[in-house]
Design a protein around this nucleic acid. Sequence first.
DNA 1: ATACAGAGGTGTTCC
DNA 2: TGGAACACCTCTGTA
Length: 213
Amino acid sequence: MPEPIKNLIGKYREKEKEIGKRLSEFSAKKGDEELYAELAFCMLTPQSKAKRCWAAIEELRERKLLLSDDIEGIASVLQKKVRFHNNKAGYIVGNRKIFLDDGKMKIRQKLSSFGNANELRAWLIANVKGYGWKEASHFMRNVGYGNEIAILDRHILRNLARYGVIKEVPKSLTPRKYVEIEDKMKKFCKKNNIPLAHLDLLFWSEETGEIFK
DNA sequence: ATACAGAGGTGTTCC
DNA sequence: TGGAACACCTCTGTA
């Protein structure tokens, strides 16, 4: 039996302000290096803890490795904190080139060149190594393009099942299933007057006890 | 000490 | 054309 939605609404009222504040931080204007830090962060998170991933990004920046081509150097930093460090180090270096324009990295320019969120996401999935639907959505939320998309990871899916938005957590997420569940989540939000991005952070904080990234 | 689940999954290959 | 199976390859928390 799903848990009553009333319980969820109650929790939302308690945390609404804090969630809104966090989201406004995500939307704050970021420069291209900051944007690449967020892009790289989302390359790291699969199968790794978000906090450790962010610590790795900080260390890469301190050591001037984040924007370098030193794959081995990057991998050695990742090794202590992040799973699949060799592949991910390669992604961090390789994914930079898709934003190059005249030899300079222009991420903001690229991101703002799309007509809507779905077009941007499709481009990210097709071009950013290490990004699928979930990570592309995660990145977009973190840089202020995530108001109309869902970040369907295992925690969110578990909570969607918990409140009866979906019958059960699917074993795997195909693109079609992703869109289908995202649509259900959107409708649920509309009906209950909770912004999509707010619900995501609420579910996340439910599971981890805090509002992070 | 040792085992085992869990960590905001995605790429590649094969059929 | 889409899906299953396997690769990636490691630390933390818990018992």
